[in-house]
């Protein structure tokens, strides 16, 4: 049986290094992240060193290297959110989840990502968890927001 990555690569016959980003995007869409194995597979396919691919992928914010959690948390760090204290919100979430942006909690329930702007400036500071927006987040409200999700798991 073909792996998901092999199926993707099959769609790019005679691909050169200019196809790298579209391939990585497809892989991430399919796996949810770029695994080490998938990067190695792409590297063999494109005859490009894995370090180069890793370099390109880390340049762009869109790629992640850990499996996303069941709930993917996006913290908006746009201008409006910043003015209304999103830096503190992010810090508090990092402390609460014990992960840094780009990482997934040990129990694989939450993953954290920082985004530039989610276009909901009127709700600033805003976070989005699996597409559900939480408006005017404060350091006090963080715990209760995350507990609602965690409670769904027990």
């Amino acid at each position: 049986m073909k792996s998901k990555v092999e199926e993707i690569l099959q769609q790019y016959p005679n691909a050169g290094r200019d196809s790298l980003i579209p391939i990585l995007q497809s892989v991430q869409e399919s796996l949810g992240f770029l695994s080490e194995e998938s990067v190695v597979q792409v590297s063999k396919f494109l005859k490009m060193p894995a370090s180069k691919i890793f370099g390109v992928a880390t340049f762009y914010n869109q790629f992640r290297f850990t499996q996303p959690g069941k709930y993917h948390v996006m913290v908006c760090r746009g201008t409006a959110c910043h003015v209304l204290g999103s830096a503190t919100v992010l810090e508090e979430i990092e402390k609460y989840l014990k992960v840094k942006p780009g990482m997934t909690t040990k129990d694989k329930i939450f993953s954290l990502e920082v985004v530039a702007c989610i276009g909901a400036c009127g709700l600033a500071p805003v976070i989005s968890i699996n597409g559900e927006f939480h408006a005017k987040v404060t350091t006090e409200s963080i715990q209760s927001i995350f507990e609602t999700y965690r409670n769904r798991e027990v």
Partner: peptide, 19 residues
């Protein structure tokens, strides 16, 4: 060989191996 490469972007760029 390409064992090392620029990783990350902007002021957070550093040189490292893959992963």
């Amino acid at each position: 060989v390409s064992a090392i490469e620029f990783v990350g972007r902007g002021s957070k760029t550093f040189i490292d191996t893959s992963f």
